[in-house]
C-alpha cells in the first residue's frame, strides 16, 4: 500500500481554499505544480518539506493544521520571487501572509512568535503615532519578546536578548544612526477611524 504524504480532509477542503483564495486574491486552483516557485525560493533550504507549491496543495486538501503552522508560513520573507516567476501569476507570499493572519485569528501558537510580535508591534506603532518611531517600536517589540520569559522568572534569555540589542544600539549611536526625536502625525485619527469602522463591519458579517 502506498502512503500519501498529504492528508485529504474533505470537511475543511472547501471552506479553507475558498477563504484563502478570497483573502489572498490568488487563484490557487490554477497551480499545476511546476515548482518554479520552489526552485526560486530563497528560504527553501530552511523550510524542509514545505515549498510554496506544497503549501498550495495542503490548502487544497483542507489540511488546516499543517497549512497554518509550517516553517514556510513563518520563514517566508515576502520577497515575491515565487509570484513573479509563477506561470499562472500566483503570489504564494500573499498566501503565507494570509496564513499568518488566519493563524492569529484562530489563536494558534505560531512557529515563530517573534515574527508575529514584530509585525504586530510595527503596525500598532505606525497607527498609534502615525509614524513608526524606531526606538519606541524596538522597545515595545523586545518587551513583547521577553515577556513570556519574564513571566516565568526565566531571566537568562531575557538578559541575552537585551545584551544583543544594547550592542546594536551602541553601534548605531556611534554612527549617529540612532534617532531620539519623536514624530507624531496630526491626522493619525483618520486611519484609526477607518480601521475601527472596518472592524465593526467585519463583525457584522
Amino acid at each position: 500500500m502506498t502512503v500519501s504524504v498529504n492528508e485529504f480532509i474533505p470537511e475543511t477542503a472547501n471552506t479553507l481554499i475558498e477563504e484563502v483564495m478570497e483573502r489572498s486574491g490568488q487563484n490557487l486552483l490554477s497551480c499545476y505544480q511546476c515548482r518554479r516557485c520552489a526552485a526560486g525560493c530563497p528560504v527553501a533550504e530552511e523550510t524542509g518539506y514545505v515549498t510554496p507549491d506544497r503549501l498550495i496543495r495542503m490548502i487544497m486538501l483542507g489540511d488546516y493544521e499543517n497549512a497554518l503552522n509550517n516553517p514556510l508560513v513563518w520563514k517566508c520573507v515576502s520577497c515575491y520571487t515565487c509570484g513573479t516567476r509563477c506561470p499562472n501569476g500566483i503570489h504564494t507570499a500573499r498566501i503565507t501572509e494570509t496564513m499568518k493572519k488566519l493563524a492569529k485569528e484562530n489563536h494558534l501558537q505560531p512557529e515563530r512568535l517573534k515574527v508575529v510580535n514584530f509585525h504586530g508591534t510595527f503596525i500598532n506603532s505606525g497607527i498609534r503615532w502615525g509614524r513608526v518611531n524606531e526606538m519606541e517600536f524596538m522597545g515595545l517589540y523586545e518587551l513583547k519578546n521577553t515577556f513570556p520569559d519574564i513571566n516565568q522568572f526565566n531571566f537568562k534569555p531575557v538578559i541575552e536578548e537585551l545584551k544583543t540589542q544594547a550592542r546594536l544600539a551602541k553601534a548605531m549611536l556611534k554612527k549617529k544612526r540612532l534617532h531620539f526625536g519623536f514624530e507624531l502625525v496630526k491626522g493619525r485619527r483618520e486611519i484609526k477611524k477607518l480601521y475601527k469602522k472596518i472592524k465593526k463591519l467585519r463583525k457584522k458579517l
Binding site: 505606525g126 497607527i127 502625525v185 496630526k186 491626522g187 486611519i191 477607518l194
Partner: peptide
C-alpha cells in the same frame, strides 16, 4: 504634509485593509 507610515512590509501580514488605507492617506 503630515504624511503617515505606509505600513511597510508588516501591514500585509497584519491586516489587508490597513495595507491599502495607510498609504492611501
Amino acid at each position: 504634509d503630515d504624511w503617515n507610515c505606509c505600513g511597510a512590509t508588516s501591514a500585509g501580514k497584519v491586516d489587508d485593509f490597513l495595507a491599502v488605507a495607510m498609504p492611501a492617506r
